[in-house]
């Protein structure tokens, strides 16, 4: 309070400048990490890209061309990215025979390979739970079982992935409509629209959604070049992803990767609107159930027990 003259003298001007420059330097130093920012991620084209549903066919073609180039630059592989549309009269349903599943986790890793998930940090869409016989409560499941051989006679195995709910809580909560349900029942994500708030991840009762906490890493040789916009094209840091029933395969009539690799035929997939399809027959003939029916999500993923004679029947002595 000693010197309160309103005009700046030379000394106080010097002090003020020193403070200002020091402040600017500190600000610059605080922002310095941003110079390592991946600028390929911040192009004007990407900034102006429209929401999936608002893109015309030409818009989409341009975007696909651009993404193909980006992927090629990064992975040295020229991918073929398509925008596969849903088919009329098709609604996909999955059925899984818990009596047959042996918990070998081949579906988990086939999915990773097919859908270009990050290897480090690890992202997997399917979790296989080892459940003690005598309980169907998934809280009892062991996610981290390691044994030389499966199945263990005292357990059964329950793979869980996106249930493609008819009433999906994740779609409800997304503030920017970056995730929605398609006419064939698949809940998809526009990876270029997601803002990464992770509200959907909190909303999902099946813990099916995964977040890219950092830039995903995929070995160049392992990249699956057969891609589509809404499914397995490489994701970016900071967006959500999840199982989409391999829509780039299934919308072309093929089976999803997790099913193809299943060594015991526990996985069944098809069109529920076709009464002759395998899944229709299962729903008609077997006693199926869905996970967490009480949360009202109406999953399109059904579980059933069939044809498993446990150790009590086929014991060692027989």
């Amino acid at each position: 309070m000693s010197s309160s003259e309103p005009k700046l003298d030379r000394r106080s001007f010097f002090r003020a400048s020193l403070g200002a420059v020091g402040g600017l330097a500190a600000l610059a130093a605080a922002l310095e990490p941003l110079k390592d920012f991946d600028r390929s991620d911040l192009t004007l084209d990407q900034f102006l890209q429209k929401h999936y549903k608002e893109m015309s066919a030409e818009d989409m073609q341009k975007v696909l061309d651009r993404i193909e180039k980006e992927v090629e630059k990064r992975y040295d592989v020229r991918p073929e990215i398509k925008d596969v549309k849903p088919r009329d009269g098709v609604e996909f349903v999955y059925a899984l025979n818990l009596g047959a599943c042996i918990g070998c986790r081949r579906c988990v890793h086939a999915c990773v390979a097919e859908n270009n998930q990050s290897r480090d940090p690890e992202i997997q869409y399917i979790r296989v739970l080892e459940m003690p016989r005598g309980s169907i409560d998934i809280e009892e499941g062991n996610h981290h079982y390691e044994r030389p051989k499966v199945p263990s006679p005292d357990h059964f195995y329950m793979p869980i992935q996106c249930q493609q709910c008819e009433n999906p809580p994740c779609v409800k909560v997304c503030p920017v409509e970056a995730t929605w349900q398609e006419p064939d029942g698949l809940t998809v994500i526009d990876y270029d629209w997601c803002i990464g708030c992770r509200y959907c991840e909190a909303a999902c009762p099946y813990w099916a959604r995964r977040f890219n906490f950092t830039e995903p890493s995929i070995p160049k040789d392992d990249l699956n070049p057969n891609m589509s916009y809404l499914s397995n094209r490489p994701r970016k840091q900071g967006v959500m992803e999840k199982c989409h029933f391999c829509l780039h395969r299934t919308r072309e009539g093929r089976m999803p990767a997790c099913l193809e690799v299943c060594p015991v035929g526990a996985r069944k997939f098809g069109n529920i609107r076709d009464p002759e399809s395998e899944v229709s027959k299962i729903l008609k003939n077997k006693h199926v159930f869905v996970l967490k029916q009480e949360v009202g999500t109406h999953p399109r993923f059904f579980y059933y027990f069939d044809e498993d004679y446990g150790p009590a029947i086929h014991g060692e002595g027989r």
Partner: peptide, 29 residues
């Protein structure tokens, strides 16, 4: 909320497609 976003650069997406009144987060915004 901004620092919690994975993609704060896309924050203005709420202006183009805003899931109101379904999403509680939209209400909160």
């Amino acid at each position: 909320v901004t620092v919690d976003l994975g993609r704060p650069d896309r924050f203005m997406h709420i202006l183009w497609r805003f899931n109101f009144p379904i999403s509680m987060l939209a209400w909160d915004v």
